[in-house]
């Protein structure tokens, strides 16, 4: 799966304004709604929060990967948001989250959804890549790190 087929500058925000987990998820979701990828915002928000309730998607080193399966999208969609100051996301290592990669995938469709999540996560595996993303001023600079 090509990251550049999924990500575009329209779904990248280099300065998220929110300061709580719920608000961050809403703000990220707004990116996808504005891009016209999501048909039912409330349903998707509920699905994302339900996933967070089961287990936080805040992984390590300031990275969070909120994701859900929903009927409100036709294909896999994703967006990226940055909050250099960090937000408490109940992450596994207790560190505030700074880089957010949100993915939504259709429920009843076979496809490389988790695989996409894994591929994106692999790009920001190194400290160097994460620092480069957080220093980015424009969406293009962020996407350049992902090779998109």
């Amino acid at each position: 799966m090509k990251i550049k087929q999924i990500l575009s500058p329209a779904v990248v925000s280099t300065s998220l304004k929110s300061s709580t987990k719920e608000e961050i998820i809403r703000e990220l979701l707004d990116l996808l709604v504005s891009a016209g990828y999501v048909s039912d915002k409330d349903e998707v928000f509920a699905a994302l929060m339900e996933r967070e309730r089961k287990m936080s998607t805040g992984i390590q080193h300031g990275v969070a990967i909120p994701h859900a399966k929903t009927k409100a999208v036709k294909n896999l969609v994703a967006c990226i948001g940055l909050k250099p100051e960090g937000v408490d996301f109940n992450s596994l290592d207790g560190q505030p989250s700074r880089i957010f990669i949100m993915t939504l995938s259709p429920i009843d469709r076979v496809g490389p959804h988790v695989q996409f999540l894994a591929e994106v996560s692999m790009v920001i595996k190194t400290e160097e890549a994460r620092a480069k993303i957080l220093q980015a001023k424009t969406a293009q600079e962020v996407l350049a790190v992902f090779g998109a």
Partner: peptide, 20 residues
């Protein structure tokens, strides 16, 4: 090695479903 992250995420998602 190159597919380890994917394998871990797959197992994680399965466990989350199992918990539910």
């Amino acid at each position: 090695h190159e597919h380890e992250a994917f394998a871990r995420l797959m197992m994680l998602e399965t466990l989350v479903d199992f918990q539910e």
